[in-house]
Design a binder for these strands. Structure first.
Lengths: 214, 214
DNA sequence: AATATATCGATAAATTTATATCGATAATTA
DNA sequence: TAATTATCGATATAAATTTATCGATATATT
C-alpha cells in the first residue's frame, strides 16, 4: 500500500458497495428516504456502524427520517468514484474473462472493459460480448497509448505475475486480480484481488464445524 | 451467525487459504521447510501475524528452520476441511456459472460441483464441463435426497433470494453467493458471499484517490 | 401547542485485531 | 565445543474497529 493518508478504514470501504446495492433495490421501490436503522436491519449490521460508515462520504441525515435516498446514493457513488467510469483492459479470455466482459452491471460500478487480451491465436481477432480480443504482447503498448488505468487479470495462476508485470510496464495503475496467487507489484500500483479460495475457505471451515456438532 | 464458539477470527480464517496457495507453489519447487518470516515476506504480512495465524491449526514449528512444508500444508487443509470434499449444487448456468463449473482447482478446495440448475428450457438436459443441467424446481427435492450441503448461487440479483429459499428448503447448510444482493437465510445456514462490487469499490476508490493527487 | 418518538452525530468505552518484546531452542559458524 | 544466529511461541502492548451513551432535533401524535 502507498503512503496514502488513510482516511477511511478498509472494513468501512468494503461495506460501502453493499449500501449502494441496497439503495439500488429501494430506488426501484421508490423509497424517498431511509434511516441507518433500516439499512442496518436489511444488511445485518448495527445502526451505529452504518451511520459511521456513511459519514465518511460527508453526507448528513435528518433526525427521525434519516437520509434522502438519492442524495445518499450519489454521495456513496461519488466517494467510490463510480460516476466517473474508468476504462479497463482484461487479460485472459477464458471462461471467467468471458463472464466478466458479459457482466452488465460494471457500468454502474464505474468500470468499462474496452479490450480483452489472450495468447490463444484462435481467439485473437474474435469478439466476446462486443469486446475485441488482442494478443497479450500488445497490452503494455496499448495501455500506455490509450492511458488505460485498470487491468483485470483472469489468466491461470502461473501466467498471472507476468501479466501483472506487463500491465505495470504499460503504466496501469490498478490491477484487479482474479488469479489465485499473490502478485508482486510496485508500491504505487493498487492491487485488489478477488480470491475464491479465501471465500470458500471460510465457508468450508464453518461447514465442517457445523457438521461436526451434529 | 450461529452460537458458534468462535475460536478463530475471521481475518485469520481469510488468510489461511493464502498460505495454502503459497505452499502449493513452494511444493512444486520442492522446498522442505518454511519459516513464518519467509511466508510473511511472500505475502506482504508480518511474521508475527503469520505465526499466530498458523497456530490455530495446532501445528508447531522448530526454531531456526520453521515448519515442515508438508505438515503445514496438511494442517491448513485439514483446518479448512479441504481434504474432505463436499458435494455442491450450482444454481444459474450463465456465464459465471459455466466459469465456476469449469474451474479446475475446486477439487483442491474441498468442493465438488455435481449438478447445475437453470430455468432456461434450452439449457436443461445439456451439460457444461460434464455437469448436467436440471430445472430449478428440482433443487430442493434433489438436495434433500442426495444430502447435498453446499449451494452455489450464480443467478441474477433479482432471482437470488428465491434460489436461496429453495436451497434452504432442500436442507442445504451453506450457501456460496455470487449474486450482488444481501440474502436472508436462517441463522443456522452459513452464508458466504463473493462480492465483485465490494472488491471493485475498494479499487475504484483508491484509484480515484491516487489520480486526484497527480 | 405540548408531548412523545425516532433518529442523527459527537464523544466515550469496549472489543477485536495486529504488533512488539523476550526467553527458549535448534541449527550454523567460528 | 562455544558462540552466533534465526526462529518459535508465550505474554504483553498498541492500534484499529465496533459498539454504547447521550444530548440535540425533526417529525408525528395527543
Amino acid at each position: 500500500m502507498s503512503q496514502e493518508i488513510k482516511q477511511v478504514s478498509l472494513p468501512t470501504l468494503r461495506r460501502l458497495p453493499r449500501y449502494i446495492q441496497l439503495l439500488k433495490r429501494l430506488r426501484r421501490e421508490e423509497v424517498a428516504s431511509i434511516s441507518a436503522t433500516i439499512i442496518a436491519n436489511e444488511l445485518g449490521l448495527e445502526p451505529i456502524q452504518v451511520r459511521k460508515d456513511l459519514s465518511v462520504t460527508g453526507i448528513t441525515g435528518k433526525p427521525k427520517t434519516g437520509f434522502i435516498l438519492e442524495e445518499l446514493n450519489a454521495a456513496l457513488r461519488d466517494f467510490l468514484n463510480w460516476g466517473n467510469t474508468q476504462d479497463a483492459f482484461l487479460a485472459g479470455a477464458g471462461a471467467l474473462g468471458v463472464a466478466l466482459t458479459g457482466y452488465p452491471n460494471f457500468k454502474d460500478y464505474g468500470l468499462n472493459i474496452i479490450s480483452a487480451f489472450d495468447n490463444n491465436p484462435k481467439k485473437i481477432g474474435t469478439k466476446i460480448h462486443g469486446i475485441e480480443i488482442f494478443p497479450v504482447d500488445k497490452i503494455a503498448d496499448l495501455a500506455a497509448r490509450m492511458k488505460v488505468n485498470i487491468g483485470i487479470i483472469t489468466v491461470p495462476a502461473d501466467a498471472a505475475q507476468e501479466m501483472a508485470d506487463i500491465m505495470v510496464e504499460g503504466g496501469i495503475k490498478a490491477i484487479w486480480n482474479f488469479a489465485p496467487v499473490q502478485l508482486k507489484v510496485p508500491e504505487e500500483v493498487i492491487l485488489e484481488s478477488v480470491s475464491l479460495a479465501q471465500s470458500l475457505g471460510v465457508l468450508t471451515h464453518k461447514l465442517a464445524f457445523l457438521l461436526e456438532r451434529e
